[in-house]
Design a protein around this nucleic acid. Sequence first.
DNA 1: TTGCCTAATGTAAGCGCTTGCAACACATTT
DNA 2: AAATGTGTTGCAAGCGCTTACATTAGGCAA
Lengths: 333, 333
Amino acid sequence: MRKARAPVTLQDVADRAQVSTATVSRFVNQPNVLAEATAERVRRAIEATGYVPNRIAGSLASNRSHLVAALVPDVAQSIFNATIEAMISELANDGYLTMLGLTGIDNVRMAELVEAALGQRVDAIILTGILTDRRSRKLLRNSNATVIETWGLPADPIDVAVGFSHFDVGVEIARFALDRGYDRPHLLSARGTRAQERRDGFVDAWCAAGRDVPDETFFDAPTRFGQGRAAFRKVAKMSPRPDLVICSSDWLAQGLLVEAASAGLKVPDELAVIGFGNLAMASEMRPTITTIEIDGGRIGREAVEVLRRRSRGEEIQSRHIDVGFRLIARDSA
Amino acid sequence: MRKARAPVTLQDVADRAQVSTATVSRFVNQPNVLAEATAERVRRAIEATGYVPNRIAGSLASNRSHLVAALVPDVAQSIFNATIEAMISELANDGYLTMLGLTGIDNVRMAELVEAALGQRVDAIILTGILTDRRSRKLLRNSNATVIETWGLPADPIDVAVGFSHFDVGVEIARFALDRGYDRPHLLSARGTRAQERRDGFVDAWCAAGRDVPDETFFDAPTRFGQGRAAFRKVAKMSPRPDLVICSSDWLAQGLLVEAASAGLKVPDELAVIGFGNLAMASEMRPTITTIEIDGGRIGREAVEVLRRRSRGEEIQSRHIDVGFRLIARDSA
DNA sequence: TTGCCTAATGTAAGCGCTTGCAACACATTT
DNA sequence: AAATGTGTTGCAAGCGCTTACATTAGGCAA
């Protein structure tokens, strides 16, 4: 059932409207410059032919693709989804189309996706994972594309970074834990992610208060319910048992809580739990989860705002845009 | 900090490698036809110049974009995420890049996104929502792009459909309800979505068994926790109280269950709940949720398989690909 | 040696659009 | 009447590739 080629081009429209191709092109891109009578003729010709402008040709000629690439680890149950959603919507308002690349756990496909995106001459490329590959970094630096790293604030961004300090999150959690008088925290982190930085922040602040280095358990990302379950079983057996488990995601925390409930442990008195992300379930399940809220949507919007400024030709004042975070104390700790 | 234009073109590489542009192009697209010595020279030239092929130009010349557009209502907490993820990964393996468009609730932006995608001359366009707009349908029919509608099996697909019968899901739920002896079901559906078809299936089968048309409550999509909560409050007040609430999503079901728990109602004896989607939480929370499982990943993979066949020039045998569904009985009903 | 075939490479004509510049028609000013 | 300005439109040269077709070199059979 393949259809015949539908080669309606600018030329066809131009012929029909009795104008030059330049005029039709202007109608499509800057309608206001045409005389109303001409515009009307073109409009009718487009209508009659069912013409859809070939943006590929347009991009080639104008050297601007109106394409943005967003590279994220995954999309299935991702903490980045709010960011992605906000970004795609905002970009659509500005006439940009978003290509989504999945870099996978450990960002194994990051490098090839960077190259693919660059091959499409995207106007911007937005990263969520951490890009370590040297060749990719170099390609990005040499490209004309705006490069925005999100969800973190690396010391030396490729171009611009929009995020928050994971280290500070750790510090804040430590402060909270000290404040509430917790004594034996246990850290549950996903390996090779920014959770590591939060862990460092926690340990730093915790030890600065004269406490011993806390115990910890590492997981392979991504963190899910099941790992929270497993973690509970491990933690429950420890002696002395930790009184606070700090999880690198709300999923982990939720898994823990479910097991704690069926083991009959009182939360937070016998076991307290802190999550990360403030996913919907954190406030909707019982007990509600004490967690760190990140405004993922704002990260997306700020990223797009950077693009806007760039395309207006404005200089970007700072290479770091900090959207902050907030600890929300609820039932679980 | 804008960077200078990096105009490394095929020509630059060709000059450096002392070959024609055609040869470099072949190296990029069909490496095996070159003599090894030539290939090596080109390889080195590319390495030295940091050349990244301009796929835009390539697409224009070859009339194949290697781009696929996926149009989904949302991505934040979507039941489609598994499909999207599977699709993007599979496509990446085949050298395709995926553009993600968000059509929004009620698919308000569907039409403009269809046109934008067509403007990029995508090789295929994959829809999850329902496309009713006549102009869009016409554009799609006239385009060369493969069009795949997913998550449903419309009687007259634009091109090919991959999904399952929502009506049958409703029938299956009715069968289950009758089987378990439920008496006063209450339907909770999102307006203007395919949930409506499931509802029809249920009502059809339920009435066919000689029962009265069940009560129902409608919501605006997307369905979330909060609406499940609200629904519980409404349902709890009814007299006689329903003994089974059929929700159009697991979110809804979960919201209901949380409220039921805090109201001290016994599930499923005093109130049973059925969800839809088999999201992670359906099996991970307590009580576990009886729900309909859809293999979203498979939908994505089947869609990509259709594209593969098309690009091999094979004729598509059937315009409907049914991936089925499965009712999973758990604690909640 | 000649003729023919195959494999490897080159030549060059586009692909469908954008846009700097030129051209023109009027209106307004001097 | 000439000069100048303003608003519209057309001309045509690309943008960086792909690919049909032409060309060349080398191998092999007759």
